[in-house]
Design a protein around this nucleic acid. Sequence first.
DNA 1: CATCGTATGTTTGTCGACAATACGATGATC
DNA 2: GATCATCGTATTGTCGACAAACATACGATG
Lengths: 266, 266
Amino acid sequence: MIRPSLPSLASAERSAPNRLAPVSRYSTVDLIAERIREAIVQGDLPPGSPLGEAEMAEQLGVSRGPLREGMQRLVQEGLLTTVRRRGLGVASMSAADVADVYSMRAAVERAACLRLLRLGGPALAATVRGLTAEVRKMSRAAKKGAARQLGDADLAFHRLLVDSAGSHRLSRTMRTLLIETRLSTFSMQHDFVVRADLADDHEAIVEALRVRDEAKLLGLIESHMDGAVRRLTGQSVHGSDVETLQAPVPDEPRELDPLELPAGAE
Amino acid sequence: MIRPSLPSLASAERSAPNRLAPVSRYSTVDLIAERIREAIVQGDLPPGSPLGEAEMAEQLGVSRGPLREGMQRLVQEGLLTTVRRRGLGVASMSAADVADVYSMRAAVERAACLRLLRLGGPALAATVRGLTAEVRKMSRAAKKGAARQLGDADLAFHRLLVDSAGSHRLSRTMRTLLIETRLSTFSMQHDFVVRADLADDHEAIVEALRVRDEAKLLGLIESHMDGAVRRLTGQSVHGSDVETLQAPVPDEPRELDPLELPAGAE
DNA sequence: CATCGTATGTTTGTCGACAATACGATGATC
DNA sequence: GATCATCGTATTGTCGACAAACATACGATG
């Protein structure tokens, strides 16, 4: 009857001043949730897709129990919506949602930038290097007209920016926001055409960060988000026939690879 | 085999321009998650408490299945922590967590204030009225030395502030942050003594909002959060024997009231 | 006396099955 | 011909049960 004390259950994975890093074994629920997130990002599960439990469970190689638990994680994130007795589905972003996502991103990335500037020193320098690498990827992708790679680098850039700030909550919120960003581009059929100047935008941000020009940096973040919302919801200036970033046509809702369960799971 | 189309599954509950408000039938998982959140806020489940599934399920009058699903929601929020094969527990906030929570709150409330100022008009006026009411509650509670009521009014103030901004994502994030705020006061034994000047702090915020003094408003928010972190993590200036806001002693981890299931559930 | 190994009990993780409900199709009626 | 009612089917929501694993307590051994 005496329950285990669960010593320092909260900060266990977080701060590890010990010599040995704690073994990180992801639970099945973790794997399921992450797999679904990935499928959404990849466009394998387009916005609005209904998610049948039986089918998904079979594809993932688990039973409905753990699957449902994992999906509740995404419901809490807002990536899945649920209607009683009708099942769950991938959220689809309205124009208002898109504006809300980028508004939130502006707040989060602004906070991250402030923290980064306050950190300064080698941490800031390392971040600048990492961001520069992502900008280069973007340039290459833009030259090749590869929308998918361009979009991926874009997300990676902003994720790195926020993760470098060293705030658990900022990072966690940002992860969800980036997936919602993808859902936004999928939901608005006005597409995210391959814009060569996107790399320039990000390069300016890196430069402002490097020289620690706070006012300029925050202004760039703000306008970056404003521009994205306008492009997605307002009149999109598309007219070129470049490849665009859209969810693959969901003829077949695309199968999820079965996940290899952690060792020991039956 | 043809799956229902789930028309506008995403924005259904969100924007309701129709005459009839959609019937809000909360799922069992919703009720369970909300019940646990409430128990955490009330201090019935103090930080670090291990949560036995069988016992909780019995108290709530549900089986372990829906209970586990509901708890996964809170895991995603960060309110519950999980260790494989050892179960879940209420998160406990380290000093770093407390700082992170208030840092995040500063970002969120700043964004909310900006939106509010941009809204202006009757919406802003109504918010000011509501906030004023909360400030009065705080004054009364402070006079009586009622820490619990003071704390509740404090949370209500900030929740109203953010909810009035009309951003789904800000509101959702804020809800979690407020619970984490409570967990912070519970985790730091340096207590949240009844401070009479707390009402003054908030009154100044309302005033700045009323006269639309943006710079002053943002400065007040910032210093409000800084002060809270210093009080909680730094040397707490406690020496008075006023009632403090602490989790009730968990001799018996306090029972959860069974929840009345939505009509039709067996 | 301390430490290691073993046994036991309790709890989590997972699965399969049942019941209730919502949807779609079919048929009847005005 | 269109609308409404009825039936059948598929899927969700919920429950109970089994097996693996961890933690504790006890005993053996150096």
